[in-house]
Amino acid sequence: MVKFNRDTIAGSIMLVFSLILAFIITPNQVEMHRSVALLALSPRLFCYITAGLLGLTSAILIIASFKKGQEADAQPTSWEPLLRGLFCTALACAYAALAGIIGFFVSTALAMTAFLFYFGVRRWAGILLFLIVVLGFIYVLFIQALKVVMPDGLLY
């Protein structure tokens, strides 16, 4: 059975992406200018060049990873760290989404509490103090000093 290593998978994903970029995304997302007669003026020129470069280098990575064989996969890889990272990415996405709905400061307080819990902080006094210090500093820096206008949320 063919056993794929990480580089083969990464290279294949990049190669597929470069093909999609060249044959689907670029023709659909980059218009051809009517007045363009010269290749140099074409807005698609560099899109194709970069997609080609990505495809070529990805193909080389796949070939190199096949040559390397299974030695890279001699040690079993654990999925747990990746799942932890993806779980935190999902939390960060929820934070970003909530910022526009309930407000930046409230969503920050919720997200920070969740992440503090995730990182093993269990003392409520510590969490509260942390939130007051961090949110207070952010308020002074961004709202008072830099005059940043926060998005309107349901709360604050």
């Binding site: 910022a99 920050t108 997200a111 503090l116 990182f119 942390f130 961090v134 952010i138």
Partner: peptide
């Protein structure tokens, strides 16, 4: 502790 550093880093990143 990292437990305090990294949540604060994320908040600063977003703001």
């Amino acid at each position: 502790p990292k437990g305090y550093i990294f949540p604060a880093v994320l908040a600063f990143c977003f703001f």
